[in-house]
Simulated assay, not measured.
Amino acid sequence: MSTLLTLLDAFDDGTQARSLREHTYRALGDTVVDVGCGSGRAVGELAARGARAIGVDADHDMIEVAIERWPASEFHVGDATALPLDDGSVTGYRADKLLHDLPEPELAVIEARRVLAANGRAVLIGQDWDSYAIDSDDPELTRALLRARADGVPQRWVARGYRNLLLDNGFTDVTVEVRTIVWTDATCLPMLANIGGEGAWLDDQTARARDNRLFLAIPFIVASGTRAG
């Protein structure tokens, strides 16, 4: 869990990631569930905006971290496909970097519809695992590393299907967009280490960061829809 937490913190601390999160908070209303909440940052930020924010995550350790970091917020250990919430009890549903880890992502979207009130809004956020762009002295090795990392993700292409998942499960006014986050400094090295591991490839990326020559770009797909009344 510590490795995952390090990765999440490295990503979430960035200015572009913060801007992306804030963009996803729009139109979620006054009672929001953040599913797959991790360390609880979005829950804390939503609460600071005046919403009743509820965090749910299947990882007990992550929920403990979230409670420690955001003691005034509400967190539950729970399954994305069986949320500990009543029917129609929230005005907003948010799932960020979650559906690619689920065996059946559609079940989470069906559950989102259940817990949302009529005209409530759902937003799904996720990276496109096959579209990472990294500058490297060894592009063939980089391609192989990226492919291996993507192949280790249960649902690596699910973000491309977010729009259809919403349309097929009772959502209207569905919108979809792509927002790309770009790194050119050492803040992304934990993510690059997760892709390439220790060795010459990561050493090259570390040297690029030191020399101001690093480039990593990750496209994030953001889809949202309104629960049909």
Rank of each mutant, 00 (worst) to 15 (best):
D79N: 13
D168V: 01
I134A: 03
A10P: 08
A207Q: 15
D12M: 09
L145F: 04
A228P: 11
W201F: 07
A58M: 07
A108M: 01
F171E: 00
I181L: 08
A133K: 15
N194R: 09
S2G: 12
M191S: 12
T206H: 10
T184D: 15
T180F: 06
F220V: 11
P190I: 04
D59T: 13
R143V: 15
E68S: 14
I63E: 03
V222F: 07
T180H: 06
G170C: 02
L102G: 10
I67M: 08
F215T: 04
W157L: 15
E198Y: 09
L192E: 03
G88P: 09
P103L: 09
R163V: 06
A17D: 09
A186Q: 00
R143I: 14
R213N: 08
L7I: 06
V174W: 00
R94S: 12
F215Y: 03
T184I: 14
G55L: 04
L116A: 14
L165F: 06
Q155M: 04
D151W: 10
P71T: 03
L189K: 03
D168L: 00
Y25H: 07
G38T: 00
M62P: 08
S224T: 07
P139D: 05
D135P: 10
L98W: 00
D61P: 07
N164R: 08
I63V: 01
D57T: 01
H100F: 14
N119S: 15
T206G: 09
A186N: 03
G36H: 09
W70T: 14
T15Q: 14
N169L: 06
E22N: 10
A27G: 13
F75K: 01
W129Y: 14
L20G: 00
V222R: 00
A51T: 12
C188Y: 02
L102E: 10
R41T: 04
R69T: 10
A117T: 12
D138C: 01
L83K: 01
D34H: 05
S224P: 03
A95K: 05
A228W: 13
M1D: 11
P103F: 06
G126M: 07
F215L: 02
T81F: 11
P190N: 04
R52A: 06
N164D: 02
A117E: 02
G36L: 10
D185W: 07
R227W: 09
A48C: 04
T142P: 11
A48Y: 06
L146R: 04
D203Q: 03
R149K: 14
A133T: 15
A51F: 08
L189N: 03
Q205S: 11
I67G: 03
E111G: 00
E198V: 10
A186L: 05
R49G: 15
Q155T: 05
T91I: 01
L189M: 03
P105A: 01
A72M: 12
Q16K: 04
E140H: 13
S136A: 06
R49S: 15
M191L: 15
Q127A: 15
D128Y: 02
L116R: 15
R41W: 00
N169P: 11
L124P: 06
S19D: 08
R208K: 07
A95W: 04
T3F: 11
A148Q: 13
